[in-house]
């Protein structure tokens, strides 16, 4: 804030980057909307990269894996065991591993874009992608619940057992709101907001450094080093959050699926 407040005395006018700066001009404009953006290119690239990498890693299926296969198996084993098996449970988790696996690495790669110089644009700093993935997960776990328990699932999911009848009028609406209305919103916004905020901070630091370096005052020029140090720290934190959010999104997906599968035990 000091770095931001200082220029005011010069009257130089520092304009911090805003939401608009997240929307880069389209690479290939067409009539409707914004045309084909960098964002879309990166999303397609992520799917192609992931598919190519994991197909290449899985194809040989050697008993003694090479480096590529080993890395692929580590990545797959992590999602399969630490998320799928541990959360959903031993018997029927295998059915949901493809979804969890695709989600985790799709989000991971699209987040990491934000930490790669030049690319530097996390896909989910635009809310659309987060909505899509959260909607897929939302429909999936409701589908699983209905398939497993029939329409009784909605009663199981909203009426907790062991609650006295006179509290039910309060509890049931809360359960409906928290499970069926708020859950998908928080699921998507958590991912979107962290990516947006992280990206904004990095952009802000970048433009702040640029602004300070171009000042006449030597002290202000020197202050850019402080901002740089802060920016590097924030960059590291962002990189951590990018991985963490991919994990959190996938973990929550697994928890929702598990909740739908075992709605009668909750």
């Amino acid at each position: 804030m000091i770095a931001l407040a200082l220029p005011a005395q010069d009257g130089g006018g520092f304009t911090p980057p805003g939401i608009e700066d997240l929307h880069l001009p389209a690479i290939l404009p067409w009539g409707a909307a914004d045309g084909f953006s960098k964002q879309m290119l990166l999303v397609i690239l992520s799917a192609v990269l992931l598919a190519a990498f994991f197909l290449a890693a899985a194809r040989r299926g050697a008993m003694v894996p090479g480096k590529l296969q080993f890395v692929g198996e580590m990545a797959y084993g992590f999602v399969r065991n630490s998320i799928g098996k541990d959360i959903i449970g031993g018997r029927d988790f295998m059915k949901y591993v493809p979804l969890l696996f695709s989600l985790f690495f799709f989000i991971l790669v699209n987040n990491i874009y934000g930490a790669i110089p030049l690319l530097q644009l996390p896909t989910f700093s635009h809310v659309g992608g987060a909505y899509v993935l959260a909607a897929i997960v939302y429909l999936t776990w409701i589908g699983i619940g209905v398939k497993k328990h029939g329409l009784r699932y909605f009663k199981l999911a909203t009426v907790p057992s062991g609650v006295p009848w006179y509290i039910l009028p309060i509890v049931v609406p809360i359960e409906i709101i928290s499970n069926f209305l708020v859950r998908p919103v928080t699921h998507s916004l958590r991912l979107f907001a962290t990516m947006l905020a992280g990206h904004l901070i990095v952009m802000l630091a970048g433009s702040g450094i640029e602004f300070l370096v171009t000042q006449e005052n030597v002290l202000l020029k020197g202050a850019s080093l402080l901002v740089l140090a802060g920016a590097i720290a924030m960059y590291m934190l962002e990189a951590l959050i990018m991985v963490l959010q991919a994990y959190v999104f996938t973990l929550l997906t697994a928890i929702y699926i598990e909740g739908a599968l075992h709605a009668d035990a909750h």
Partner: peptide, 12 residues
Amino acid sequence: NPWEMGVVLISF
């Protein structure tokens, strides 16, 4: 942006 949503959906 609906176009972005579409791209994410199809890619995913």
